[in-house]
Design a protein around this nucleic acid. Sequence first.
RNA 1: GCCGGCGUAGCUCAGUCUGGUAGAGCAGCGGGCUGUUAACCCGUUGGUCGGUGGUUCAAAUCCACCCGCCGGCGCCA
Length: 431
Amino acid sequence: MHKTISVREVFDLEDGSEIELVGWVRSKRSHGKLVFIDLRDSTGVIQVAVKYGLTNSESFQKSLEAKIESAVRIRGKVKKDPRAPGGVEIQCNSLEILSQSLDDFPIRKGVGLKFLLDNRHLHLRSPRVGAIMKIRAELIDAARRWLKENGFIEINCPTFITAAVEGGATLFKVDYFGKTVYLTQSVQFYQEAAIYSLEKVYSLQPSFRAEMSRTRRHLTEFWHLEVEVAFADLWSIMKVIEELLYNMVKSVCEKCREELKILGREIKPELAEPPYPKIKYAEALEILRRKNIELRWGDDFGADEERELSLEFDKPFFVTHYPRESKAFYHMPDPENPSVCLNADLLAPGGYGEIVGGGQRIHDYNLLVERIRENGLNLEDYKWYLDLRKYGSVPHSGFGMGIERVLWWLLKLPHIRSACLFPRTPARIYP
RNA sequence: GCCGGCGUAGCUCAGUCUGGUAGAGCAGCGGGCUGUUAACCCGUUGGUCGGUGGUUCAAAUCCACCCGCCGGCGCCA
């Protein structure tokens, strides 16, 4: 069996062209002696008109029997018709049911959120979900292209780990031949090892967070694009983030017009065009103070403050120089003001929050030891990580980008779940 | 983990405040229809009211506990 033509291509054919199409019955409207079938494949949806008299009688009977989402083969003529959605339809000569649906398809008009999530394996057939997944693929593709063109080497890091990258985040426990190990929540430490061989590296793989986060921006399993660069300070890593994100957004704008149309989203590359505004933590406090939100030095921004802040900008913006006590131990303290660190968080405008987190790492052995102790962590747990600072240690920086977060912001999705084929949240591990 | 909301037909919900024989729309099924746009018209089937226990002559409705889901916060990408 092979496919000769796709739905997308039919729209470019001349009136009267004889075609054979295979696909799935998305919906059906029966008028007695006239049946409309919306035929779906991976490229789109087209209306098929099955008319008694024009279609052979056996096929006409089949069109009445074909249930929603059954697989069918259609033969007929292409016909431009303003009454058809998209202005083109297929006048059916014959219809063959390749695979009849055994039950009525559960995904219907008016079903609720829970039902759609419980039936995600079927819901993903909808053009909307398909469009989001195509855009996701383009986003990832564009990231890989840009990174490769700019000399980054893709590396693959382990998923099983023995200790936390940071003290705070919660890790999933896994039984490893009787030993307790954990699922990775970031490959940063491994990348920091790899830069001494490859200098500019990136990884794209899932990260896991065992947080009971009940929000529309959290997943327990998400795709994490992480980058680490040798001989790079805070400012050069922000440049990498800007250029990378810009090229990802630009590529989606250029190559996913059809998908964006299906989603009703109009986006322009300017949305993410560098340079991005860069404000220091102290300046962020000032902005909030002007909005009558008082925060003390050292207080972290809550979701409300972050939202207020993000309303001040119309493109992604960096917040840098956080108080060192509010960030993980490996962040480089600012030599000019050691009470803050050289971090860079990229926040999306419009209340979508953090999409990138990163900054410059501590490359000095003694300073790192001091910071580990300051945080009450055990030096033994970071033995190999400390080793990296013993042999030709150089300034370096990196970041992590949440692929689903970017997609969530870019497409203004109602929930980050919509950015995944099969989302994983504290309450959802099925299907 | 904390706070709030929800759970009634296959699906989406009303009914709960004020206890008294279980409702609607959609889907399904039967019928009709040659231009619909997740069609429409007529008829019709369908229920352990999330679970357990309690109060009561009587509980979907009141009380207690439990379970599941949704959202906000904290945490983060």
